[in-house]
Each structure stands twice: as C-alpha cells, then as structure tokens.
Design a protein around this nucleic acid. Structure first.
Length: 921
RNA sequence: GGGUGCUUAGCUCAGCGGGAGAGCGUCGCCCUUACAAGGCGAGGGUCGGGGGUUCAAAUCCCUCAGCACCCACCA
C-alpha cells in the first residue's frame, strides 16, 4: 500500500466494478428493505443537500444489504415542470433569440426532451461519484410511459369519484410563466410599499369616501366600496353609490365586516377579480367580477383606452399620476406588508380568475392524518409530526393544472361546447361517454403540477397500476429520507395518494433532515456566491477555478466582485481534494437533529485525516502480519490483556452502532466509530501491541496478537463500509484475505454481529488502571518538561494487592509506554527522595526529582491540583451532610457520593503531604 | 396573528433530572520506523437572564430577552 492515503487513486475504480457486477440490485435473502430516493430534477446538478441526503440513505442501504436483507434503493429523476421549462426557455432565448411561442408546443417539448437527453446524466453521474449504491437497473423518470400511466390512472379515478374538479376560481397566477401555481409555490415576504389614500365621490351628494390601497391600479376593477356596518362614520353611506375615479364606474357602497374600522380610513375598495378577500366579499354581495389583466398582467380592454396594454407597474405610476391631477389622491403613506411572489419566477403573484383543475383535499387528508396519529407513519425527529398535522388540518384544495408545456398532459377532452370528458385516453373517453368518432374533441392544453406525479412515486416506480412482484414485495417502503422543506409539497401528498390507491401508507418512517448551510449559517445560493459543490470537495478545486465557477451566470453580474472577494477570503488556497469517503463521513457526523447544518471545511479535513489514520493503521497491521502465521490455521493462540480489551471494546462499539443507526442518530454513529478506531484501536491497542511483537514472547502470544490485529481491523472495515465505502473496499481487498474471508467485495460481506460473551468488565478495569498509570507518568513528564525519550525510574507506594497483581501482569507494557527504566515498589514508611507524584486511586506514582525536576513547577502543579480538589471535596461534603439528600436520594447515588468523598479525602491528604515535602526541599 | 425550533468551551455542536462533553482551533514538548493529514500533554464554560418544582436542575415548569424558521387573506 502507498505510504499516504490518496482518495483519488482508490475511488475511481470501485464504483464501476460494483455497478457492473450488479451488486446494487436487491439480492438478499432476508426480509425486504426499501428506500425511495427523492427524485432530483433530471436536468439538475448535485448540490450539498443531495450529497447529504444520499450519503445518509446510502449508509442505511449498505448496512441493510450487509445484513442480508432484500434491499432496494429505488432511483430515478423528476421532470420538474416549471424548473426545466424555465431553463430550456432561457437557453432558447440565449442561443436562438426566440421564445417558446415562436416555435410552438410540439417543437418546444421536443427541445426539452433533447435537453433532458443531453444533460440528464449529469446528476446521475454525480450520484455515482458519491458512491450511492442505488439500483440503476430500475432507474425511473416521472415521464416514463409507465409512470405516466399511473398519473393518468390516478387522475381519472379521482375525477370519477368527484375528487378532482374543474372550475373558474381565483388562483395564484404567475405572470412571468403565465401559469397558475399552488399556494405552496407562493412565497410571501415583507416589503416596503406605499399605502395610497384615494377619494371616491359619493353620487348625488357632496360627500366622498377615502379608501386606502396598496394597489391603486386595480381600482379600474373595483365593483364596490365596503365599510363596516357598525362603523358610525359611514353607516349613512351604505346603499349609496360611489364613483370610481378615472373610469367613472358607479359602484355600490356596501356594509361588510371585512372592512376593519381600525385600519386606514375604515373604507376599503372591493376588487373581486383581483384579490382573494375581495373575492369573498364579492360572493357575499353578489358583485360582478371585472378582470382587467391579461395573462402577462398587462391591462386589457376592460379599462379605458389610455391604460390598455400597459403592464401593471407602469399602469400604477400612470394611475397615481392621473389621480393626483384629478385631485383624488389624498395621501401617500409608507407601509410594510407581505408581498406574494412566485418561488421560481420571483415576480409578484396576481390573484387571477381562470379555469383550473383542483384536487379536493378534505376527504383525502383524513386517512393521511389518521395514519400518522396511529403511528403507522412516524416522523423522526418527532417534532415534525406537529408541523404535518397543522398543515393537514387546514388543508386547502390543491390546484394541479399548470399552463405549461412540459409535463403530463391532463387527460381531459372538450367538445365544441366545452363540455369536459375525462378518461385514460381519447378512445376511452369516446367509449365511456358514447361519443362517436365524428364528435370533435380536443385535449386540455394544460399539464399537471410536477408534484402530482411525485406524489405517486412510491408506487408508480414499482409498476403500479400493474400488480407487479416488486410492488407486492417493497410497498409499503420502510423509510423516506428528505428535507423538511418538502414535507407539504411531497411527503404529505405521497401519504395521501398511497393510502387512497393502495390502501397502505407509502412508508413507515420519515427521517427529516436539516438543511445544509454555509459555515456562517447562510443558505447556499448562487446569488450569494457561497455555494459549495460536493464534487469540488471530493476532487478539490483551485482558487481561480472556484471564482470563475461562482461568478459565472450570476443573475446580477454586479455581485461578481463581492463574490470573488468573499471567495478569496474564505478559500485563499482553493479547496483541497478530500475524497468521497471523507465527505460522506462529514455528512454523517454533521447529521444532528437540528434544522440547519453548518458545513465547515474544518470538519471534512478532520475526517480526511481519519481516513489517513485508518490507512496507516492498516499499513502497520500489514507490516506485521503479511506472510506470517496469524493464527487462522494454527489456532494455538494465547490472547493478551490488550487483545481481550480491544475485542471487548469492539462489542460495545457494535452495540452502539446499531442503536444509533436505529435512532437515526448519524452524528452519534460517526462519533462512536471515530472514537473506537482512532482512540481505542490506534491510540491504545496498536501501542500496547508493539512491545508484544517486538519483545520476547511466546509464539502463541505473538500469533494471538497478530490474529487480533487482523480480525479487529477487518471488523472495523465492515463497520465503516456503509459510511466510507471506497477506502474500506480498497483496504478490505488486502485485509479480507488475510482474515480468511472470501468474496469479491466487502459490500456483500455480513455486517458485524455483537458477541456479548466477549465483553469482559474485569479486562476493562485492568486496562483502565493501566491507562491511568501511563497517563499519570506522561502528565508528570509533560508538566515537568522532561524529554519524552528520557528513561525514568518509577516508585510505587500505597499499593494494594490488586495494584501489585496488575503491575506484575503489565510491567513490561508500562515500562515501554511510559518510557521507564525500572519500576520499584516501596513500603508506605520507606524513606523516599523528593519526587513528582501522580495518583491512581490510592496508588501513588513517584518520579524522583533529583536532577530532573523543577521544584517550583512541581509546587505549582500540586497547588493547583489541591485547590481544584478542595472545591469538589467541599461540595461533596455539604451534599452528604444534608439529611434531605441522604434520606431522599436513591441509595446507589448516596453510596456513590460517599465513595467519591473518601476517594477525594485520600487524594487530598496525599497531595498535601507531597506538597509539604517538595516545599521543604 | 398563530405555530415550531434554537441560545452549553474561541468556533461548530452533543448531552436533556444525580460528578460539565466531543471535534476543530489555542498553548507546551516531540519528526519515538503505521501515520507531522502525526504523537504526548495542557488550558478553556456562574450550560442566554430571572423565577419555580425537587434532597438534587444545563436537563422539568413559568417568564423575559435575543436569533432563526414555518403557516396565515387584513386593504
């Protein structure tokens, strides 16, 4: 093996080999285990969020696969309606200078498919770089024929049951994309706006009312003025008529509770076609709806000619100007309010009256709520359950039609008179509704919301509406791993659809991840220029390339300078190549239960070092075991204390590993294996082994040590494999055979099982003692500034029988690891020279100071230790002298406290007498 | 307007009723033949403030403050 760990060299080859040999497909004999991947946008690129979630899913999948379960990780991509159409439209404009309407629907959709074919493998290629062991042989796309069948089937059935309906409604309209969008796709943000106060004259009087509005341009669509019926200021006006300025329309003044006397002037203009509240008011008072906007939000021919064709911003300016001229503008106030914008387009959303398709959610939501209430689906962390319920209990009907070209065409047809017929295809419609071929039918132009097909993902990918073997075997799936940002968009709707069409939940557990932020806690976004690309963390990238990447294609090119500056500051040397395994381990370690996860480069560096540690530990093991008798044939072996210790610790590690994985505490999982590999196996065990292998010991003992070195390392590799697949495979190819394991790959080796018989508390106690003795001496050495190589004599005093036994067992080890030239036991009353001391329980370790130790340093050290101890001692004494504590606390706690106190007393006495002695020198 | 989460060592975060923890950073000594991407050791926190429950509170309850986020139609 190379001297230094180099991820690049080892990560390239393995994935291809695994995939070619079909190791990702389900083969296990045990019970099925299935995770559906949240399908990424087919034309997308891998970002940190994907990297994070896929890493966690892969850990779970690889673990189950090694347990021998029939493990399916279903992969696929999403057509992502708006997002994809947007990109292709932009490219079209950039490359050819044309808009989609210039080439027409058919040609445009063809272009989108071309774009998909050409860019669609970017993200799947990147998933492979990440090591994701998904079953590529079952890859699906939401617009595959089979999945499209599922969409049609669901739509048709829901329609036939009356759960899908079509109607003219006020919907959220995105004037940039000219489509309706759902409530969820609208993001409201507080913005600084104006509140214009406008005077309307009251007909046949000298009276007038003043209304306050943030949208003066919509006054052209006013069909009433509302005041509160209880408002004494205006009661007399109810039933009278007001004149809308600029268009001279006469509208009734109505009384409605919606008008809040406290707000503005207490009078409000009512524009039913362009405001959700006003729409309600209009319904109550039977007001006409006047639509003044085109789909692009330009003023249409329902307004005076002067305003026709203006876009809404321009119209607003003009109307304010004209109101001013006509002296109808009374006041302009600064005002803060929430403005709804399209999450994709960023433009202000217009409430717009159109024909749309809706899913009626009330009835569908009920079983989806019950399933979670009854624990058939569990959210992890649990807190998300509440979020889910809150949304589900207030669920609104889902607007599913989109006026886009890219997506699933709605399976509805219209005749000449606009009667609607729904069926799986035109032929079925004709049969179902007994329409002869002569009857003219045209299909609905609209497509379905992307999330409609996503909602079917857990069963459409398995072949539904056909009854397939996979569907029977893997549905309901076990787990969904996803971010909290799409609980409503996706998770809730999958539950609804799964229960509706398969009568079973789509998954039993939902592990909700946090969202990856940058090191400062900011959301990673292109415009902020703080995006990290997982691939760059794997392969590394130099500073200039990183800057080029981050400043390319910015929405606001003027931000480029700031982005460059920040990048130079944050990554003065670019990003080094950390490798996939280090990245995956980092994701695992960062996956705590919080909502935001700050990605810090320091972490990934640390875990790259961890890979290096494992690498080098392996080199040491190989150095000592290759071409040697390692106790696999000749099983005559005699385990040392160290051997039994590390095997015992290994069992604890396996237990904790399984527990943390079961709890989805990936952070604790990472910590557990890190601690065991680095601090137990490398720091202690490998060091304890050295004197054995180098010293004079029997073949049985040495053979046992080599044997243990190998079996523990090989087990470590299998434990680590789900987290770090590449390095473990690379090493296992060498270590596996050494451990007499057969098989092509570590990924199909059985996962380590705990053996409780190998846990030995007496061993642990002895090793703890041994560690304390060694650390005690090392501490003296470090604090006294004694060179690490310098051999020292050690005296031991106040030893118990146990101490003496353990010393006999471990004398050589202590001498070697603590660099001692001799160890001498002295009696309590023997006259000993001035010495630096350390305590292990009651046992006193003494390093004679003659010519070695600095008196003042030792005095200071003792003084400090005594002071610290005195405080603890005092606190403990107070506690124990409190009868309430002694009476009420559990016996074990009290006993423990007493033991602690005695221990401290002993220590304190010894340290004090030491101090006196040193001071008297 | 409702709801949720967070506040613990310089930084990032675990711990969530009985002796304050980890990683990274910092400081000191060391290139000791697995590893300087390392070894050995050390320092560092009235656990956001204030109340309460309890023999015992970082941990449970109340309250205040600050910071996030989600949902909601007030012009």
């Amino acid at each position: 093996m190379e001297k230094t760990y180099n991820p690049h060299d080892i990560e390239q080859k393995w994935y291809q080999r695994w995939e070619q040999q079909g190791h990702f497909a389900p083969t296990g004999e045990e019970k099925p285990y299935c995770i559906m991947i949240p399908p990424p946008n087919v034309t997308g690129t891998l970002h940190m969020g994907h990297g994070f979630q896929y890493s966690l899913m892969d850990i779970l999948i690889r673990h189950r696969r090694m347990l021998g379960q029939d493990t399916l990780w279903q992969v696929g991509t999403d057509h992502a309606g708006i997002a994809t159409q947007m990109v292709v439209e932009r490219n079209l404009l950039l490359d050819e200078g044309i808009k989609r309407h210039d080439i027409g629907r058919e040609a445009f959709v063809k272009k989108v498919w071309e774009w998909r074919d050409q860019s669609g493998d970017t993200i799947t290629r990147q998933m492979r770089r990440l090591g994701a062991s998904v079953d590529w042989s079952r890859e699906r796309f939401t617009m595959d024929p089979g999945l499209t069948d599922a969409v049609t089937e669901v739509f048709t059935r829901l329609y036939d049951e009356g759960l899908i309906y079509r109607g003219k409604r006020l919907v959220n309209w995105d004037p940039k994309f000219c489509t309706a969008i759902s409530d969820l796709e609208v993001v409201s943000q507080e913005e600084n706006v104006k509140l214009w106060h406008i005077r309307y004259n009251v007909k046949n009087t000298n009276d007038h009312v003043v209304i306050a509005t943030t949208r003066p341009e919509t006054l052209l669509a006013d069909t009433a003025i509302a005041v509160n019926p209880k408002d004494p200021r205006y009661q007399h006006l109810i039933g009278k008529t007001a004149t809308v300025p600029l268009c001279a329309r006469e509208v009734p003044i109505i009384g409605d509770d919606y008008a809040d006397p406290e707000f503005g002037t207490g009078c409000v203009k009512i524009t039913p076609a362009h405001d959700f509240n006003d729409y309600e008011v209009g319904q109550r008072h039977d007001l006409p709806l006047i639509n003044i906007f085109t789909a692009e939000a330009q003023l249409n021919d329902a307004v005076p000619v002067t305003y026709q064709g203006m876009d809404r911003e321009h119209a607003r300016e003009q109307i304010v100007k004209d109101l001013q001229t006509k002296k109808c503008l009374v006041d302009i106030k600064d005002y803060k309010t929430v403005i709804p914008r399209g999450d994709r387009s960023g433009v202000v959303i217009e409430p717009y009256l159109t024909d749309q398709w809706f899913v009626s959610m009330d009835a569908l939501a009920k079983p989806a709520i019950t399933a979670v209430e009854q624990g058939d689906i569990k959210f992890i962390p649990e807190g998300w359950t509440k979020t889910y319920f809150q949304w589900m209990h207030n669920i609104q009907d889902w607007c599913i039609s989109r006026q886009l070209w890219w997506g699933h065409r709605i399976p509805a047809w219209y005749d000449k008179d606009n009667n609607v017929y729904v069926g799986r295809h035109e032929q079925e419609v004709r049969e179902k509704y007994q329409l002869s071929d002569a009857v003219y039918l045209r299909q609905d132009e609209d497509v379905l919301d992307t999330w409609f097909s996503s909602a079917l993902w857990p069963f459409s990918t398995l072949g539904w509406p056909q009854t397939t073997a996979e569907l029977t075997k893997y549905y309901p799936t076990n787990l969904l791993v996803t971010g909290f940002d799409i609980i409503f968009y996706w998770v809730a709707r999958m539950i609804v659809m799964g229960l509706k069409f398969l009568d079973k939940v789509p998954f039993h557990e939902v592990y909700v991840t946090g969202l990856i932020r940058d090191a400062q806690g900011n959301k990673m976004s292109k415009s902020k220029g703080n995006v990290l690309d997982p691939i760059d963390l794997i392969d590394g990238i130099d500073l200039e390339a990183l800057i080029t990447k981050r400043t390319a294609g910015l929405m606001q090119p003027r931000m480029a300078k700031q982005v460059e500056k920040n990048t130079r500051k944050d990554f003065p040397n670019g990003i080094p190549a950390f490798g996939t395994d280090a990245l995956r381990f980092t994701f695992c370690a960062l996956a705590s239960t919080g909502r935001n996860i700050r990605f810090d480069l320091g972490r990934i560096e640390g875990y790259r070092n961890f890979c290096n540690k494992l690498w080098n530990a392996t080199r040491y093991v190989l150095m000592n075991t290759e071409d040697k008798d390692n106790g696999f044939e000749n099983t005559d072996i005699e385990l040392t204390l160290a051997d039994r210790f590390i095997i015992s610790e290994l069992q604890h590690t396996i237990i904790n590993y399984e527990q943390h994985l079961k709890d989805y505490r990936f952070d604790l999982l990472a910590q557990t294996v890190y601690e065991f590999v680095w601090h137990q196996y490398c720091d202690w065990y490998l060091e304890l082994v050295k004197p054995v292998l180098m010293g004079e010991h029997s073949d049985n003992v040495k053979r046992a040590t080599r044997h243990t070195l190998i079996i523990v390392l090989e087990t470590i590799l299998r434990l680590l494999h789900p987290i770090m697949p590449f390095i473990t495979e690379e090493i296992w190819q060498v270590v596996g055979p050494l451990a007499h394991k057969t098989g092509d790959t570590i990924m199909l080796q059985p996962f380590p099982q705990v053996n409780l018989n190998k846990i030995d508390k007496t061993i642990t106690a002895e090793v703890d003692w041994l560690k304390q003795v060694i650390v005690g001496i090392r501490t003296i050495r470090a604090e006294m500034n004694i060179a690490p190589q310098q051999l020292l004599p050690l005296l031991m005093r106040h030893w118990s029988q146990q101490d003496q036994q353990w010393l006999t067992n471990n004398r050589e080890t202590i001498e070697k690891l603590a660099k001692l030239d001799k160890i001498e036991c002295v009696t309590a009353d023997s006259d000993i020279p001035p010495a630096a001391t350390a305590l292990v329980g009651k046992l006193e370790l003494l390093i004679p100071m003659a010519g070695i130790i600095d008196k003042t340093a030792e005095v200071a050290r003792l003084q400090k230790e005594i002071n610290k101890l005195k405080q603890d001692h005092q606190r403990s004494e107070t506690k124990l002298s409190n009868p309430k504590f002694v009476d009420n606390a559990p016996e074990a706690i009290v006993a423990k406290e007493r033991e602690r106190l005695t221990q401290m007393q002993v220590t304190l006495e010894k340290l004090t007498s030491r101090l006196q002695q040193v001071e008297n020198l």
